[in-house]
Amino acid sequence: MSLTILAVDDSRTIRNMIRLALIPEGFTVYVAEDGIDGLSVLDGIAPDAIITDINMPRLDGFGFIDAVRAQSNHCATPILVLTTENAPEMKKRAQSAGATGWITKPFDPEKLVKALLMFAG
């Protein structure tokens, strides 16, 4: 089984890290640079899970999650928030925006893979 993942992050470094963590595991990884970009990429694909950053230009992670959840075909897609904010209130906000879970940056590639496999299972 090969999972398709959409990763949304404004940092090229983080996007590359995600790709590096997932592609060797057989994942198909689509990337986007911010919420707006993420929504337009999402337009053409049906990912098994979405990874998104919070702090992004144009449309931030909260807004992005909200917009994804508003689409009937993505309302149940697992969304993992990647964030450096370990603060509980950030997680709460992500959760109330509709995030399924979170991974704290810097992320452990193995943990990311495991989380995705779990969610998309």
Binding site: M1, S2, Y30, L117
Partner: peptide, 14 residues
């Protein structure tokens, strides 16, 4: 959930 083959899958048109 963990039955995903972790082995090589050709690169996708990422």
């Amino acid at each position: 959930a963990t039955e995903v083959p972790l082995a090589t899958v050709p690169h996708h048109p990422d």
